[in-house]
Computed example of a mutant assay.
Amino acid sequence: MAFVFMVAGAAALAGTTFHCSLKPISGSAWIPSRITLHFSDDFRTAQVTDLTFGVAVPAKVVQHSKTSYALSWALTGLAVYSEPGIARPRFRAVLNTANQKMSLQAAKKGGNAKLPRGRGFCETENSLSLLAQNEGDLPQPAEW
Rank of each mutant, 00 (worst) to 15 (best):
G9H: 11
Q47L: 12
G27Y: 01
T67A: 10
K23F: 03
A29N: 04
A98C: 03
T36D: 08
I31R: 01
E125P: 08
V57L: 04
G110A: 13
A98D: 09
V7L: 14
T67E: 12
V61F: 03
I31K: 02
A106Q: 12
A59H: 02
Q63C: 10
C20Q: 00
V57C: 08
T45K: 11
L13F: 11
M102F: 03
A10C: 11
F121D: 11
A29T: 00
T97K: 09
T124Q: 15
C122E: 07
S82D: 09
V4D: 15
P116C: 04
A113H: 14
L95S: 03
F39D: 01
A29I: 00
Y81D: 11
S103M: 05
A56K: 13
A12K: 13
R92K: 05
Y81G: 12
F43M: 08
T49N: 02
R34Q: 05
V94R: 00
V7W: 12
Q47K: 13
L75K: 03
E83Q: 13
A8W: 12
T124A: 15
W30L: 05
W73A: 02
P89R: 02
R92W: 04
V80S: 06
G9V: 05
K101G: 10
R88C: 04
L78F: 12
A2F: 15
I35K: 01
A70L: 08
K23T: 09
P89N: 02
C122Y: 03
F121V: 14
M102S: 05
I25Y: 01
K114W: 11
F43Q: 03
T67L: 06
T97N: 05
N96Y: 08
F5R: 10
G120V: 08
L51N: 13
T76E: 10
W30K: 08
D50W: 12
V55T: 15
V55C: 09
T16C: 08
G118Q: 04
M102G: 03
A93L: 06
V57T: 13
T45S: 14
S82V: 07
A59L: 01
R88Y: 07
G77Y: 10
R44N: 04
G110L: 13
S28E: 10
V62N: 05
S33F: 02
K66D: 09
T36R: 07
I25G: 02
T97V: 13
F43E: 00
L51C: 09
V57F: 04
M1F: 15
D50A: 10
R90F: 06
L78E: 12
A46C: 04
L22E: 07
P24C: 00
G54R: 05
S72C: 08
R117S: 05
I86W: 07
A29F: 00
A79Y: 04
F3Y: 14
A74M: 04
R34T: 07
Y81W: 09
V55D: 13
R88K: 11
S28C: 06
L75I: 10
F121N: 12
A70C: 01
Q100P: 07
N112S: 15
V4E: 15
R88G: 10
S33Y: 01
S65T: 11
S65M: 07
P32M: 02
P32F: 02
R92F: 04
L22R: 08
A29W: 01
S40C: 04
L115V: 05
E123A: 15
R92C: 02
